[in-house]
Amino acid sequence: MKPFNTLYENMAQKKLLWPSVGIIIILIFNAFFTPGFFNIRMQDGHLFGSLIDILNRGTPILIIALGMTLVIAMEGIDISVGSVLAISASLAAFLMQKHVPFVFALGAGLAIGALCGFWNGLLVAKLKIQPMIATLILLTVGRGIAQLISGGQIITISNKAYRFVGGGYLLGIPFSVVIAAFVFLALYFITRKTAFGLFLESVGSNRVSSEFTGIHASRIMLTVYIICGFCAGLAGIIVSSNITGADSNNAGLWFELDAILAVVIGGTSMRGGRFYLGGTVLGALFIQTMTTTIYTLGVPSESVMVVKAVVIILVSLVQSEVLTLKLNSLFHRKSEKKVLVNETTI
């Protein structure tokens, strides 16, 4: 019982418990009600199956959510990531259609995403506009910019190198999953192996006190928004590559909501401070696993958002600090009773 208690406490402290439980419950449900859900086969050197689809299709949300984690840790928010995704996808696809070399088109798509993040960071960090209002500007204007780039049309892409980014495979694994893993490792190194992560949590906990200690809070905030914009741009490249085209009207639609939910489900508080990149990964996988399950069961598309909302509300409720403290107290009481029984027996 003691090892289990220790495992529970460690997972609860790292905010990994409830998203893990949520994923396990959905997987158990699929084991009984979705035949062949766990089947993975190798075909033409590529892995195929529902689990592979979850990893592949959840990659854009995961990458955006990782960037969003840093923004929320700073007590900010970025609701423009869906529009930034559309801008990056449209620009990269437009350049590819004009026969611009792949490297330059890819770089332009990533650069415009980072530039959008710089714009949001400038409004928040320098002009001190509330994050919701500052990013609402680009949320509103962004899709208009994307439509101007694409001419209001769906741009199709035939370049093999570009299509490989979101639709290719490396050693049987979707290449987009490899990209997501690289992004996670890069952000983990930056935030956990350098002073940047400490400064970020300090600014998120108390910006004024951080500035008194010599931390340049505005630089941290600006950097975080640039990273978030870059992640949204990268997700846009993956999405457009996967569908071999760019749809400025629908690309990244509601992605900002799924990204924020993934961060919150992963244990990062909207009040800023401590953040959990590993929890965000689990949160994104939970959302994608749930979405895949819903579609597999044939739930009508108009009901998908309702089902997702109900499940996410339940997960958020059981993730509350009050419930966690009560469960911790319960485990401690059981352990103490077992110790007393053993001492009495002796």
Rank of each mutant, 00 (worst) to 15 (best):
K2P: 07
N5A: 14
T6K: 15
Y8P: 09
M11Y: 13
K15S: 14
L17I: 13
S20Y: 04
I23F: 09
I23V: 13
I28H: 14
A31C: 09
T34L: 09
N39L: 11
N39I: 12
G49R: 04
I52H: 01
L55K: 01
R57S: 08
G58F: 11
G76W: 02
D78I: 05
I79Q: 03
G82E: 00
L85G: 03
L85W: 05
I87A: 01
I87G: 00
L91R: 00
A92C: 12
A93S: 08
F94K: 05
M96H: 04
M96S: 07
K98C: 04
F104E: 15
F104M: 12
G107P: 08
G107K: 06
A108S: 13
G109H: 04
L110K: 06
I112Y: 02
G113E: 02
A114G: 08
G117P: 10
F118Y: 13
N120W: 08
N120R: 12
L122P: 02
L122I: 06
K126A: 12
L127K: 15
Q130K: 14
P131S: 04
I133N: 04
L136H: 11
I137V: 11
L138Q: 03
T140Q: 09
V141F: 11
I145W: 02
I145Q: 00
L148H: 01
I149M: 00
N159I: 01
N159S: 10
Y162F: 07
R163H: 04
F164I: 01
V165I: 15
G168W: 05
I173M: 02
I173C: 00
F175S: 09
S176N: 15
V178F: 06
V178K: 07
I179W: 10
I179P: 13
A181I: 15
V183G: 10
A186I: 15
T194W: 07
F199P: 01
L200M: 06
S202G: 09
V203S: 10
V203Y: 05
G204H: 05
G204V: 03
E211N: 11
T213W: 07
M221R: 12
V224H: 06
Y225M: 02
C231F: 03
G233F: 06
I238K: 02
S248A: 06
G252Q: 00
G252R: 00
L253F: 00
F255Y: 07
L257H: 02
D258G: 03
V264Q: 00
I265T: 03
G266Q: 03
G267D: 14
S269V: 01
G272Q: 05
F275L: 14
Y276G: 13
G278D: 15
V281W: 08
G283T: 11
T289A: 03
M290L: 14
T292I: 12
L297T: 03
V304F: 13
V306C: 14
V307S: 03
K308M: 07
V311E: 13
I312H: 10
I313N: 08
L314C: 10
L314Y: 07
V315G: 02
S320F: 03
S320V: 07
K326I: 11
N328I: 04
S329M: 07
S329L: 13
F331Q: 06
R333M: 06
S335Y: 14
L340E: 12
V341P: 04
E343S: 12
T344W: 09
I346E: 15
